[in-house]
Design a protein around this nucleic acid. Structure first.
Lengths: 343, 343
DNA sequence: CTGAAAGCGCTTACAG
DNA sequence: CTGAAAGCGCTTACAG
């Protein structure tokens, strides 16, 4: 495999030709044979290829990169690769990149702007052709500077206002409209939302979407949003839900997968039954729903599309450095279970 | 960030020194200052560093790699990075690698030997200093050839017989002994196991561990192992569990996280209550347990140690090419919930 | 159709 | 303490 490292020089010696010719044959091998301008003598070409195989030749990537200034590697910076939502997206990106002969390097920020900054620097130094980033709160200015550096860049899941950069995001307002509408159709009016207390576009849009939906449906008086601190989810969700239930709330809409699971767990602990006493619409699918006593209604995000569109958009930016930035907005879909239904 | 790409030449020009001196100053910067053999003039050094900063210099990784023959990148090939067990390990490896200035590239095999082979080839061509692999069935010979190529290599989660290669694995026999013992202590004798139908060391050891534990506890007559096909889990688990319950089985031990969740779900669908009618010991922790009606007893694997030990062991192999291979065996710990208890 | 040569950016003996 | 030079392995105009 690695062994003594055969180089084109070895092959050239063995074949009695120049290294240039070897290089030429090797690179033509992977290109459209019709596009080659020069035609290498068939027999010579075959001989070179045969020797390369025999000597177990593997081109040196560093040399090629140094020469071409392209690494065929991209960086993908997520919130946390062990979070199922991001892990699933990571998998899609990995698969797609593999197909296009790209390698991807992942990094996790834990919603920490310093870490994000550091990761980007490491990856840029390492040499990457482009970046997909899930931005976190506080990283706006830094990401703007990355965008200005002309590094091909695509934001995912969240975007940043006032910065000219491409992004792939969810239609969060539509998600919340679907959630609220479904609950209203099932007879709820006291519908409250549990979201994060973070200054992120998706968080804010979901909150805004909830408000708009409520007002649109004539329930403006019942609007109530509970903003949970990211670092202390369980206990906050429990207390928020406890007092809301005491106030006679009829339904909860959750803003993320983690919040949904914490919420259902809290309702269990408070011995509030779903959907008999309180109805629920969650966000994202989860393995955990499979073991829940009731089938869960949730907003389903198009995970595969997130991965695919982000990657494809980044490829476009890499191939055309002067491409205009654009935003791809993906549509969520509500999946109805019993947790939101009339009893 | 990337911009016009400053090189040491630019800095040398600006500072009126040679590129060698610049290179020297730049690399000394990151080494133990006491170890330097030459001492660069303090003032010159400071001036060079200052210019580097002002010109926003970032060393070209490809050039350095080409020169040094080291990439500071490792490859990690898992079964599936979107599986929670592997995603958690991936996160640990990522964090640890980051601390040691290493970059990691992940790949998923989906238990497909061809894919594994391909991924390894891609990564090796790309240039990596070492590999951590979760081997899959059918990849034994190929992995043996990788080991022979002297590429630093560590197997994780499973190992391969007859090949001289390092590995980090779980003490699967101990896991199963704990599982069976706990159930026996709670009065069960008809304990059956649900595992995979795969020829992998961990699968086989868990099965063997179950058998030994049963025999050791005088329950050899009740030994029954159900081997599930990896590609058709849900339906097979359901039918296996259905007939076992009909036979009057008292408890199930599951061999992996996916099997545990499928099993609990199947019991739900069959309206068999846990632990009243049947007791259960699962494998690996899962978010899903949080929403299950009963707290689940499970075998907990030391995820962080898996990541850490694999990485550390690989580092040792990278630093010392002639190091003897070794196996690190990690201890599981049973976490007792209500699912295994007497009613 | 094929070869000689320059150069990508860096590191490392080797002189001075 | 500092500089000139070779070379890592490859690609790419440019000649022939």
């Amino acid at each position: 495999m690695t062994a003594k490292k055969t180089t084109i020089k070895d092959i050239a010696n063995e074949a009695g030709v120049s290294i240039a010719l070897v290089s030429f044959v090797m690179s033509n091998q992977t290109r459209d044979p019709d596009e080659r301008i020069y035609k290498v003598n068939e027999e010579t070409s075959r001989r070179i290829l045969e020797i390369a195989r025999r000597l177990n030749y593997h081109p040196n990537n560093a040399a090629r990169t140094l020469r071409q200034g392209k690494t065929n590697t991209i960086g993908v910076i997520l919130s946390d690769i062990s979070n199922k939502f991001f892990a699933d997206i990571a998998r899609c990106i990995e698969d797609r990149a593999y197909k296009y002969d790209y390698t991807v390097i992942f990094g996790s920020t834990d919603e920490n702007a310093d870490k994000l900054e550091n990761l980007v620097k490491v990856l840029v130094d390492k040499g990457i052709d482009g970046l997909i980033i899930v931005p976190c709160a506080g990283s706006e200015r830094f990401i703007a500077s990355v965008a200005e550096s002309r590094m091909p860049l695509v934001l995912m899941d969240r975007n940043i206002g006032g910065v000219d950069v491409s992004s792939v995001v969810l239609d969060n307002r539509s998600a919340m409209l679907q959630a609220v509408s479904t609950l209203v159709e099932n007879g709820c009016t006291h519908i409250e939302m549990v979201g994060y207390d973070m200054c992120l576009s998706n968080v804010l849009e979901r909150e805004e979407g909830y408000r708009q939906a409520m007002e649109h449906l004539g329930l403006g008086d019942h609007v109530a949003v509970h903003r949970i601190d990211f670092r202390n989810i369980e206990s906050q969700v429990r207390s928020v839900i406890g007092s809301a239930v005491a106030r006679g709330v009829e339904a909860f809409v959750f803003g993320t997968n983690t919040l949904t699971i914490s919420g259902l767990k809290a309702l269990d602990e408070l011995e509030v039954s779903v959907p008999e006493q309180v109805r629920v619409v969650g966000f994202d699918d989860s393995e955990a729903f499979e073991l829940y006593r009731t089938s869960v209604t949730y907003i389903s995000q198009p995970i595969e599309q997130f991965g695919q569109e982000s990657f494809d958009l980044l490829m476009k930016h890499i191939r055309n450095r002067d491409m205009q930035s654009m935003t791809v907005t993906l549509k969520p879909q509500i999946v109805e279970g019993k947790s939101s239904s009339k009893i």
